[in-house]
């Protein structure tokens, strides 16, 4: 069995290299981006603090606690620049009025920006684009967009795509393409053939965990953040996300082992995934009661096994969730092996 595993895995890695590399780059980038966003967010908070200090006339007395000296300089400049951008923001206007009412002396005239300041300002391009220091980051809409759509959603989707893609291609796609005849007419056991697909998929998932952690850690080297998460704190949600992909792979593989064409397991797995996502979204609407009927689809959803914040901070449910997801994967693989070993393999024509 083992002598055929290596060439099979090697072939599958070559075959899937573009998909896998693109997925890994995307996950690495997103992980890096999460650090960048945290850095921006912290920078904004510091900027607001500096601005308030400047408005109270305390800027010369004390620097913000968390900001490094390098960070302070441009942020102070941004804060000095506030009166120009204040008309855009109602809360800022109110603050200015309050400041004026307290008869605080006006801020000194703003000196021209240095190159370093301009460079740093450009580096905060996205932050400026989103409204700069006047942006109200406490807005629920912006938080939701940043957290769920930009940060959490995509890293979940990529392992799911990988799982569905690899699962459906394992048996059904090879029968459909006719390449299975080439392989299984050689002395390759059907179990070895399936295990090669499983191992290749696991290699992909392992690499995904690595890049999710590496993206964050390498990103920290370029974007300063106040609190650097530990390796364990990064590994927990990464493993959790990948375990969801693993469970999806197991189910898709089992469906693929029954089928002759790839589109069917692909379609069913995709529909199930989308349905679970919708069920999860419905069940997690704010303000719903725990005994509501629409909590039920959320409980059945694979997405309910993913709690990034809890995973990140406490890791309380990670063990159980990963165990359940891994069990789904194992059941799927066993079902696929049993079915694949007992079925006919008709000619592709």
């Amino acid at each position: 069995m083992t002598k055929s595993l290596f060439p099979l895995i090697n072939r599958l890695l070559v075959e899937t290299r573009f998909f896998l590399i693109f997925s890994l780059i995307a996950l690495f980038g997103l992980s890096w981006f999460s650090v960048l966003r945290t850095s921006w967010s912290e920078g904004r908070q510091e900027t607001v603090a500096i601005r308030e200090q400047a408005q109270r006339g305390e800027l010369a007395k004390a620097a913000p606690k968390k900001a490094s000296e390098k960070k302070d300089e441009p942020k102070a400049e941004i804060a000095k620049d506030e009166p120009k951008s204040e008309p855009k923001s109602e809360p800022a206007k109110d603050e200015t009025k309050t400041t004026e009412a307290n008869a605080t002396p006006p801020a000194p005239p703003r000196p021209p920006d240095t190159d370093a300041q301009r460079q740093q300002r450009r580096a905060r391009g996205f932050y400026q684009f989103m409204g700069g220091p006047d942006m109200d980051m406490s807005s629920g809409a912006i938080e939701t967009m940043m957290l769920y759509f930009l940060t959490v959603g995509i890293p979940i989707m990529i392992p799911l795509f990988w799982g569905i893609s690899r699962g459906s291609s394992a048996v059904a796609a090879e029968i459909e393409r006719g390449t299975m005849d080439m392989i299984l007419s050689r002395p390759v056991s059907r179990t070895a053939y399936l295990m090669a697909h499983v191992i290749t998929t696991l290699i992909g998932f392992a690499l995904m965990i690595v890049v999710l952690i590496a993206g964050n850690k390498i990103g920290e080297q370029f974007h300063s953040v106040d609190l650097s998460p530990s390796f364990k704190a990064l590994a927990r949600p990464a493993i959790n996300v990948v375990a969801m992909g693993l469970a999806t792979f197991g189910l898709t593989l089992a469906m693929s082992a029954w089928d002759l064409v790839r589109w069917r397991p692909n379609m069913i797995a995709s529909i199930l995934t989308i349905a679970q996502l919708v069920g999860y979204a419905i069940a997690n609407q704010p303000g719903t009661e725990d005994d509501s009927w629409y909590k039920v689809p959320g409980k059945l959803s694979i997405f309910s096994t993913f709690y990034p914040i809890e995973g990140f901070v406490k890791g309380e449910k990670i063990g159980f969730n990963v165990m359940v997801l891994s069990a789904v994967f194992v059941v799927g693989v066993i079902a696929a092996i049993l079915r694949f070993n007992s079925r006919d393999l008709p000619a592709n024509s």
Partner: peptide, 8 residues
Amino acid sequence: LPGELRMF
């Protein structure tokens, strides 16, 4: 040697 050849 299969009658229907599908290769990589």
